[in-house]
């Protein structure tokens, strides 16, 4: 009796962990498969985009027809497209500069200063991150109509800068929060005026975050449609140009543009990751 009981116990004791182990194993297998699918899901379209930029056929269908660089040469001889790229560079450059000039003091104010209406100010400035871009675009369009501004690339710049402000403020604010206040106090304690402290101590320490933010904002501006849609005049930015050709029909030329954009984006990411990691070792 006693021995049977014991063997029963031992059997029960080993059986349960075994079942658990099987469950855990199959759980892991399931997770690995799923993670693979997610990655495939994320990268398949990007692969498709790139592959078909080198495909001879005019239509984007399988099977592949043969290798060509025609779409790239077409792209580089397309004056409208090149003008659009130029416009986008112009808009992105100035929108990023403006958003930094306004956003960095705003992040500072939110982190360091106390003033009446701070909560309202924070909510207002962060609004565009949550609101549909269309609404930001339309409301600014209303403003420009009321004051009688003509729509142009410059109004687009104002629109982008406003929409990107939310991103800039969030990023810089997060960095400032991690910056010990005592560092700036130490600088003041050692005789530095607030302006000296900003340039000698604060700025060098948030530099990486600023460059990172600038890169993010640049890509966002370079890809922006909803705000641009309402605020642009006769000139097209690159995404607006692509948008309008898409409505006319699909051509692999777009894939060529896309491949170039992806290439530039990847270079920017690698650059920003390198920037954000290089100066700090801890």
């Amino acid at each position: 009796m006693v021995t049977i009981d014991q063997s029963d116990n031992i059997a029960a004791g080993t059986r349960r962990p075994l079942m658990d182990r099987i469950a855990e194993r199959s759980g892991s297998d399931f997770l690995i498969t799923l993670a693979g699918c997610v990655l495939a899901f994320l990268y398949l379209p990007i692969a498709v985009l790139i592959i078909f930029s080198f495909n001879e056929s005019r239509t984007l269908t399988l099977p592949l027809q043969g290798f060509t660089l025609d779409w790239y040469s077409k792209m580089f001889s397309n004056a409208d497209l090149l003008a659009a790229i130029g416009n986008s560079l112009y808009v992105a450059t100035f929108a990023v500069s403006l958003t930094l000039v306004i956003g960095i003091p705003a992040a500072f104010a939110l982190d360091r200063l106390s003033f009446p209406g701070k909560t309202v100010f924070r909510r207002l400035i962060l609004m565009p991150i949550a609101l549909p871009g269309v609404i930001t675009g339309i409301s600014m369009l209303n403003l420009f109509r009321v004051v009688g501004f003509n729509l142009s690339l410059e109004t687009v710049i104002l629109g982008h800068a406003t929409a990107l402000l939310a991103v800039t403020v969030t990023q810089i604010y997060a960095r400032l929060q991690r910056l010990p206040r005592s560092m700036e106090e130490a600088s003041a304690d050692l005789g530095a005026s607030p302006i000296q402290t900003f340039f000698f101590v604060t700025l060098p320490n948030i530099k990486a975050a600023i460059v990172g933010t600038a890169l993010i904002c640049f890509t966002l501006s370079f890809d922006e449609i909803p705000v641009t849609f309402f605020l642009t005049g006769r000139d097209n930015t690159l995404p607006m140009y692509i948008w309008s050709t898409l409505r006319r029909g699909i051509t692999p030329e777009i894939n060529a543009v896309g491949t170039i954009i992806i290439l530039v984006s990847v270079v920017l990411i690698v650059f920003s990751v390198w920037l954000l990691h290089e100066p700090k070792k801890d």
Partner: peptide, 27 residues
């Protein structure tokens, strides 16, 4: 990083690619 990187790739182009994948003449 592999999950984050696509965020940097043009939203418009990624949406456009789905059009070319799912269309009646699509991939």
């Amino acid at each position: 990083m592999a999950v984050i990187v696509p965020l940097w790739v043009s939203y418009l182009l990624r949406a456009y690619t789905w059009k070319t994948i799912l269309g009646s003449e699509g991939i």
